[in-house]
Each structure stands twice: as C-alpha cells, then as structure tokens.
Design a protein around this nucleic acid. Structure first.
Length: 492
RNA sequence: CGGGAGGUAGUUCAGCUCGGUAGAAUACUUGGUUUGGGACCAAGGGGUCGCAGGUUCGAAUCCUGUCCUCCCGACCA
C-alpha cells in the first residue's frame, strides 16, 4: 500500500513529515511556509485548546481579541522587542489592487493606494495590547488585567517545518498587567506551571521547567521561563514560554497607575504562550513507525470499534451490539467511533486507525458475540486481549488511563536516560554527536561563552532548571568557575 | 540567503541520456464475489507534462528565462 511511512531509523525528518501527511493532520499549501491544518489535526488542536482555555479561566484569565495588524510606530515602541522580531515581519504597505492595464485579467498593486503608515502583521501582540492597556489603566484599582487571546501570528521564517515552525501559526498569548513586580513574577511562574502540568498530564510529555539564558530570552523580557521537552531523535523542543516583562512595555507605552499612596508607578507585565507547535511535539514525543500514538486525554477518537462480519445478517447483529457498546462508552464520556463503513475491510481499518493513533481499538465479530467477548488492541504497546463484554466500559476506562500513564512513563524513561552530566569538552561534543539529549554541564554564565559553544556545536542552553542544585564547578568550555549546571542540547 | 532535490492522472512515480500519437501502480466509477491485519475479478473514466519564450516538419524530452514546492544550513517558537 501507498500509506507506508519512512522508518525513524532511516530518516527522522522524513518520518515526521510522512506521519503528519498520512495521518491526515495537515497538508502543504500553496503558500510558502504555511500549512493547511486538516480536520483531524484541528480536532487535536481543539482538544488542547479546550483544556488550556479551562486552565486559564481557572487561574482568573479572560479571553479577548486584539487586531491582526500593528501600526509600525507602535511596533517599534519597545526597542528590544521590535529589533528581535523585525527581520521576520510581514508588512502591509497597500490596501488596494487594480486591473493591470498591460495584462488583461491580471491584477497589480495600486500605487495610489499606499498606506500612510505601514501595518505590521503581528508576530506577537505585546505592542498593540500595551497600547490598548494604556487606556484601560489609571489606578491600582484597574489592576491586575489578566487577558488571554487565541489568535494567529505570522513570523516570516527562513525555513519552515510542519507544525514545528510555520510562517503563520495558531497560538494563545496571555498578556497580564500588575501593580507589583512580585505579583507579575508570581503570574509568570504560575503560567509556566500551567504549561508544564498540561504537557505532562495531558500530552503525556515530560518537560523540564527552567529559565532561559540572556541569549535565548524573549525579545523585550526580563526573564523567560520555559518548558523544554526531548524528542525521540535527541533534540530538544521548546514547548511553551512565560515571560516576565518587567516594566519594559509599560515604559515603552507609558502605562502608569496611581498607587494607594497617590503616586504614579509603571505597570509590571507578563506574557505567555503556546502554539500549534505543541502538535509537532506531541507527534514526535510518542509516535512510532506505524503512525501516530496519541495520549487518550487529547485523542480526537479514543476508541474505535471495527465490526467483522460475514453477510448482511451477521452485520445487523454486530451493528446492534456495537451500537450498544458505543452508547455505553459515550455515557462514560469516552469518545468512540463505530466504523461500520462497508467500503473498506477490517485489515485496512486496523492499519488506518493505527496510523491515526487511536489509543484503543475494539474488533467485534460473530465469534466474539457468541462468547460475549471483544478483542481489544491498545495502540501504545500493540497488545491484543480478549475481554469479556461484561463491564466493558469500566475496563476500557481503565485501559485508557493505563495508556495515558504508560506513554508518559515511556517518554519519561527515555528523557531521563538522555540527560547526562558531562564535565569535559571532548565528552560534551561526543555526547552531542552520538547520543544527543540534554547535557547537564557547568557554564561560566557569560553570553559570549554560550555563543561560542553554539557556534562550535550547534548546542544551546535550553534552560537553567528551576530549583537547580548549586554546586561549584568549572565551565565546560572556558573552565572558569561556575556555581551550577545548565542544560545544553541541540534544539528544533 | 547559500547548497541539494523536484514540479508529468486525485496520489506516488516512470518516461527525458538518444525529440516521433502520454505510461505504471494506486486511488476513483460501475457490476459481481468478499470481509478476524492494508481483498479479488471484470469493465470504465481521468493529464493544455509548473509557466513563458526559443530551436525543429515535430518538444514531456533540447535551449533560454521565470515561478513554485520540499530537504539540508544560517535565523527562529
């Protein structure tokens, strides 16, 4: 069949692309670097979005929506932020097309319709949002502002990869304003915790929480907190970030509030986001050469029932039983699909749902009905078991939970096996080349050293883990004194 | 932006070296037989060969230009 995917061992990136395309998550589009998210991929995003949205609301945030376009003068207000994003901005310069007089049927940009001021298509929304917050904040009574928006952003990346880095992507961005530094820092940490909890308990993807080095920090932030995950090929993936923005944006947009003591004070800010990149992370974290492996908590379909019948009469009987099982599972809140499509045969369906990563498959045939059993296959281990149809709902519920735990543990074991402490340069380089993974090593704390290491090895500091153990040591490269280890890796 | 690969049927690709009526597999349509791991038989439909020029009696094939996509790198979430 044409639906085979390239094995990971042969070509990891080809495997990844094959998987996305053949599992029906996304397609390439006519636009460079932009992809079409297909219904199955979008369903996955919706599930992620719903869980996150609930968590944001539980932590006191509200959703709002700000414009796609940012006037250039606003965009450039916060210098570091502007500088950081400038080289990847799409810019709107005109607002009208007209017929090409020299080429009938074709359109040209109407030179008469040049904008007074260019509009930047948002690569992130701090500028437009802080310009707005200025009008909303006068007193300490107006604080905090805790807002999130679900949106698309555009970053004109030189090289793109499905989900991991696309020119346009979907994300959420939280933007909060606080009266005190302390409160803003608490918020920043709270949100990275929300992300870590989501990654581990829903995506079943273990992450390391930490702080970015100055080089890797978000443009315009005082501190960037990150969750870092490890992919199966040994490369790290930054999966979510939460920024403490200090008073940088408040100063840039002149956002002050009057304190209880009637003194003007700049507002403290945070911003935090995760994107459709998480889908790429999810794919790479668990999937295998047969296709996707999805965590039950996020899978668009948790259980698929495949009927196996001979003739119409047998089909009718199995239909009846399968429909009953489906109803009972649905009553338990389980997402079930009963695939009684007569156009494809069971074997084809088995392969297809494995490709799509459906966690549990039930195969129900006449033979099973006679014995009051059903064949249940789990996607993660590919184990098949014949289970009694009595209390099947409870058994499936347990199984789904087992699968969720199992794929998390598997990913965690892999991750833990791939964090190594390294104390000398040769081993550092050798480990990167041969094994990949996170390397815990001493660093002298200077941006120059980090830059040099990056140039020499392509490895960057992924983060300085939170609650990092303090110990004296010597920098892996310069041998200068160091007080703690940081995590290095090659990253996506 | 540098390097590489590519654009021919819905899809994957062959054909190009050496110019001569556009091919395969798969998918699709119809009919039949099937259904416990990607079914089988029969018939059928489907492509201005990325685009624009040029050479030629004749171009998917040769030449020039151009657009686009993917992969690797630099940049980045």
């Amino acid at each position: 069949m044409s639906k085979e995917i390239t094995p990971r061992s042969e070509d990891y990136s080809k495997w990844y692309n094959d998987l996305i395309l053949k599992a029906g998550l996304a397609d390439y589009s006519a636009v460079r670097g932009c992809m079409v998210i297909k219904p199955y991929g979008y369903a996955l995003w919706e599930n992620m979005r719903d869980v996150l949205d609930k968590k944001f609301k539980e932590t006191g945030h509200e959703n709002a929506y700000f414009p796609l376009f940012v006037p250039k003068s606003l965009f450039e207000a916060e210098e570091k932020n502007a500088e950081g994003f400038a080289k990847e901005c799409a810019v709107v310069t005109h607002y009208r097309l007209k017929n090409d007089p020299n080429n009938p049927g074709k359109l040209i940009v109407d030179p008469e319709a040049k904008l007074e001021e260019e509009l930047v298509v948002r690569p992130t929304s701090e500028a437009i949002i802080w310009n707005t917050y200025k009008g909303w904040i006068q007193s300490y009574r107006d604080l905090p502002i805790l807002i999130n928006q679900w949106a698309n952003v555009v970053r004109w990346e030189m090289r793109t990869r499905l989900f991991l880095r696309t020119a346009e992507f979907l994300w959420q961005e939280g933007h909060t304003a606080h009266a005190t530094e302390e409160e803003a820092i608490v918020e920043t940490k709270q949100m990275i915790n929300v992300y870590a909890d989501f990654a581990e308990n829903f995506m079943a993807m273990p992450v390391i929480q930490g702080v970015k080095s100055a080089n890797e920090r978000f443009a315009g932030a005082e501190d960037t907190y990150t969750i870092e995950a490890l992919m199966q090929d040994g490369k790290a993936l930054q999966s979510g970030t939460s920024h403490f923005l200090g008073q940088n944006f408040a100063k840039a947009f002149d956002v002050k509030y009057i304190t209880k003591d009637n003194k003007p004070e700049y507002v403290w800010a945070t911003s935090w986001g995760v994107s459709t990149r998480l889908i790429g992370a999810l794919v790479m974290a668990h999937s295998d050469d047969q296709g996707l492996v999805l965590p039950p908590k996020l899978a668009p379909i948790q259980v698929v029932i495949v009927p196996i019948y001979k003739g119409e009469e047998s089909k009718a009987i199995i239909d009846a039983k399968a429909t009953e099982i489906m109803k009972n599972l649905k009553d338990k809140g389980i997402k079930v699909k009963y695939d009684n499509d007569d156009q494809s045969r069971p074997g084809w369906k088995f392969a297809e749902y494995e490709m799509k990563g459906v966690p549990v498959r039930m195969a129900l045939g006449a033979r099973d009905l006679e014995n009051n059993v059903v064949e249940v296959a789990r996607r993660d281990t590919k184990e098949k078991n014949v289970l009694s149809l009595d209390q099947i709902e409870a058994q499936i519920e347990t199984l789904l939970s087992d699968i969720q735990n199992n794929i998390f543990n598997k990913a965690k074991t892999f991750r833990d096996e791939n964090i190594v402490e390294v104390n000398d340069w040769d081993t550092f380089v050798k480990t990167l080349d041969e094994k990949g993974g996170f390397i815990s090593a001493h660093w002298d704390g200077t941006p120059e050293t980090e830059e040099k290491i990056k140039e020499m090895t392509k490895a960057t500091i992924r983060c300085i883990p939170l609650n990092n153990k303090q110990e004296n040591g010597a920098c892996i490269l310069t041998k200068n004194p160091s007080t703690q280890r940081v995590l290095f890796a090659r990253a996506y």
